[in-house]
Nucleic acid binder design. Structure first.
Length: 277
DNA sequence: CGCATATCCTGACTGC
DNA sequence: TGCAGTCAGGATATGC
């Protein structure tokens, strides 16, 4: 299921929207636009061109050709759909925002189903914008993946590693699945940082970096649209390499012990008693 | 402040 | 087969 906007730098999204002009924006959902009124969003977007496509943590950032940036967060079930002008576009259920683009040759449409957050703050405020959402990371995992930074951020905290790692202030982009994947060795998702040894923080940071890199790389499929990857996703070798995640009762791929499932907050967590102590 | 819990929404899945 | 119920996923408001 979803965790990270697909493709670092979002070439799929980039190819679909960068350089294209927005001719019309319709807001259909009532709770989709945040931090501003739907009318303001529409006014900011219509007539503008998309200049760049990027990402910051789990936020998609589409800069416009003026001083604004379109910020999109898909939360858990959000999805972006792209349909070219040649395609018919039956309105999918729960379509919240529709953005019509002017194409090179003819009109094409970008449709968004089930978006959970759209806003368009001025570009000058973007660095500050994610702070309201408590994002500290950059494009991929930025400073949070540096062991000293991670160690500093974990210092003094008493909650378990999973609860902490999924806080975007630790390492932007880490979600439930990637948190589980990042933890191994002497620690588990339940371990409090105070008992985590220094060397383990280093491997934690390295693991998180690797998880994000692999996750982003392994979704390079033929999809033109932008969507979160599916945990049971068809192609990706990624989920096949989970050692413990979503493998309750099965054998850990690292040590062969039986994987246990537990709940941390409202989320499932998996741990292997053999190699995660 | 830190931590836990409830809540939002939808598609997938489970059980009757 | 259809329908109701449950759950996962990310962020955040609320309560302690």
């Amino acid at each position: 299921m979803p965790e990270l906007p697909s493709r670092d730098g979002s070439p799929g999204l980039e190819g679909a929207v960068v350089g294209r002009r927005i001719v019309e924006v319709k807001v259909l959902g009532r709770r989709t636009v945040r931090r501003q009124s739907p009318a303001e969003l529409v006014t900011r977007l219509e007539g503008r061109k998309f200049a760049t496509a990027g990402r910051r943590g789990k936020f998609l950032l589409l800069s416009l050709d003026d001083d604004a940036v379109l910020v999109v967060h898909l939360r858990m079930s959000g999805q972006l759909l792209h349909l070219s002008g040649a395609q018919r576009w039956p309105m999918a259920p729960h379509t919240h925002v529709v953005v019509a683009l002017r194409g090179r040759d003819r009109a094409s449409l970008r449709r968004s189903a089930d978006l959970r957050e759209w806003s368009s703050p001025p570009r000058s405020t973007v660095a500050a914008y994610p702070s309201s959402s408590r994002i500290s990371g950059g494009t991929r995992c930025s400073k949070g993946c540096r062991p000293p930074t991670l160690a500093a951020r974990l210092a003094g905290r008493r909650a378990g590693l999973k609860a902490l790692l999924t806080d975007q202030r630790m390492i932007a982009g880490i979600g439930s699945i990637y948190a589980d994947r990042s933890v191994s060795g002497q620690s588990s998702v339940l371990t409090a940082p105070e008992v985590v040894e220094r060397g383990e923080v280093t491997s934690l940071a390295k693991a998180a970096r690797a998880v994000l890199r692999d996750a982003v790389a392994s979704r390079g499929s033929s999809l033109r649209d932008l969507r979160y990857r599916d945990l049971d996703g068809e192609v990706g070798s990624f989920q096949e390499r989970h050692a413990v995640y979503d493998r309750a009762g099965e054998r850990c791929r690292r040590c062969g012990d039986h994987v246990e499932r537990l709940k941390i907050g409202a989320r499932a967590a998996y741990l292997c008693p053999g190699c995660q102590l």
